[in-house]
Structures are given as structure tokens and as C-alpha cells.
Amino acid sequence: MATHSLRVVSDRAAPLLPPLLQIDGVSLEYRTPERIVRATHQVSFDVHAGDRFVLLGPSGCGKSTLLKAVAGFVAPAEGEIRLEGQRVRQPGPDRIVVFQEFDQLPPWKTVVQNVMFPLRQARGLSRAEARERALDSLEKVGLADFADAYPHTLSGGMKQRVAIARALAMRPKVLLMDEPFAALDALTRRRMQEELLALWDDAGFTLLFVTHSIEEALVVGSRILLLSPHPGRVRAELNSHQFGLASQGGTEFQAAAQRIHTMLFGEPAAEAQTPRARSAASR
């Protein structure tokens, strides 16, 4: 599989360590009353420790199903998923998922209790150890003052921050995020992207992130895998570590977004018809 950067050729040195996560020729299927539907077809990619790896593609390309397979919720019809060389066969605390839905927090538990619960159940921490780690994680996402609040008193963005705090407190080998900011308004979404990148700078976790937004993929990802429309096949793998929130609106950022759109759909996006965008896309 060819690997491209958004400048066509990557100048990043190849990692010396073996991949943390390997997806090797994975095809995923699901059954409907009428037939068996193939969601992805022979998808392969590697995720290295510390990557911010984004799965990008149109709705229905199987990217969320692929994330669930990495989490261990869906078994591949063919191919194999390996974490640190071991085949993924079931869910585990080494892979924690943050979903799009806000209501993923049990409403009868306070914020700190929500973060503590998996630490007690899956990691076997004592109550004191779990509370200490939970409060530290809430501090990192700016919610320490809401530790004793209940989920129904929080905004959507705050609920997602609790979910992220809960996931990070588990210290997974891979943090899996399935379009976690898609339902947020534009301003809250940008703030959540800022906070996620700041957390990554602080903790250096490995991230596998699903989105159908080209701009979000460029902002969040250091590497991007492009998936074709249904069934999802690998179109390209891109390096995007040169971009960030400050890049948005810049000529190079807009040109990169247009190139990705063309690779995914075979034609420039509508906004490329502006003189500035046409000039950027031609470079």
C-alpha cells in the first residue's frame, strides 16, 4: 500500500519500533434480513505508538465498524487485527472507546464515580486509588470542579470531556474515538479539538480517531487513512503532522483539503471554485 504525504512524498523517518497496532487485510461484514453486507474490504494499515491516526471517509464506508473491530466488538470476516503482536479476539481495557453519543455516562453516578467505575471494575484499583486517578484525569480536562455533579447537569461538550477523562484514566494502549465531536456546535467542537491535542501533548497516548470531516482529520491527525465509499477500501495513507488548529484557513491547509476531497470523490469540492481555492489546489 502506498503511503503519501499531503505534499505527495513523506520526509518523516520510518519508525524504528514495530507497530503497536496492525490491521492486516481486514474485511468486515454484517447481516441484514435480506443478505450479508460487506462493510470493509481487505483494509490494511499500521498504527505506531504515539500516532494520532485518523480513519477518514464518507458515511457508510465502514470506518466506525472498523473501529469497533479494533475494540474487539466485531470479528473480521477475513484478515487479522493485532495489538503488540497479539491477535485481538475480544474487548479489553487496553482499548477504550469514546463514542459520539453524549449519554454514555450512567446518570445515577456522579462525574467522579463515572470515571472511577471502570478503574475499580477493570483495573482492580482500590477506591482511594481510583478516586485519586479519576480526579487527576478530570483536572486534565478542566472538570475537577464538577466531580460531584451528575451528568444531567452538564452540557454536551462537558459530558464528552468526562467520557474522555474516563477513557484516559484507564491508560489504554490505544484510545479509540468514534466521531466524538460530530454532534457538537462549531465553537464547542473546536474547543474539544484544542483540548484533545493539548491532552495528547501532555500524555502522549496513541489515538485512533474516526471522522467524516476532512478539516477535522487534518487538524487532529498526524496520519490519515482514506477509505473509499461502501465497501471501504484503502484509497491512500497520508502524513498530516504539519497541520494543526492554527493552519485552518491557510492556503496550504485548504489545498490539502481539496486534494483529499479529490482522492475520496474524484472531483474538487464546491468551494474549490473560488479563485483562491483554485489557485491553492493547482499548486
Rank of each mutant, 00 (worst) to 15 (best):
K63L: 14
P91E: 06
A75M: 14
G79T: 08
R87E: 13
R89K: 09
F73R: 07
L119F: 07
K68N: 09
Q113M: 06
L125N: 11
D103K: 05
I96D: 04
P107Q: 03
A77Y: 08
G79S: 03
K109C: 04
V112H: 07
L138E: 08
R82F: 10
E78H: 08
P106V: 07
R89P: 02
V115N: 03
L119I: 06
G79Q: 05
A77L: 02
F117W: 13
L135V: 15
G62P: 12
V70K: 05
N114M: 10
P107T: 15
L66W: 10
I81R: 02
K140L: 15
Q86C: 07
G62R: 03
A130Y: 03
V98P: 00
S137R: 15
P76A: 07
K68C: 09
F102V: 03
L119C: 08
P107V: 10
D136L: 15
V97R: 00
F117G: 09
D136T: 14
K68H: 13
L66I: 10
K63Y: 10
G85W: 05
Q121A: 14
A77F: 05
V88R: 06
A71G: 11
D103S: 07
V98N: 00
P106H: 07
K63D: 11
F102N: 01
L105Y: 08
L138G: 10
A122M: 15
R87A: 11
G85I: 02
F102M: 02
A122V: 12
V112R: 08
G62V: 10
R89L: 14
V111R: 11
K63H: 12
L105E: 11
F102A: 03
A128H: 05
R120C: 01
G124E: 10
Q104E: 07
V97P: 00
E101I: 05
K63S: 09
V70P: 05
R123W: 09
P106F: 06
L105A: 05
V98G: 00
K109T: 03
L138P: 14
R89E: 09
A77D: 06
D103P: 00
L119Y: 02
V98F: 04
Q113L: 07
S64D: 14
F117M: 13
K140S: 15
L105H: 02
F99Q: 00
R120A: 12
R131G: 11
R123M: 12
P91K: 01
V115M: 13
I81E: 01
R133P: 15
I96C: 03
R127T: 12
R120M: 09
S137W: 06
G92V: 08
R131K: 09
K109W: 12
K109F: 12
G124R: 00
R120Q: 09
A122Y: 08
V74N: 03
P91I: 03
R123T: 08
A75E: 15
Q100V: 01
L83H: 00
A134L: 13
A134N: 10
V111G: 01
N114V: 03
G72Q: 01
K140R: 15
Q104P: 04
R82C: 04
N114T: 12
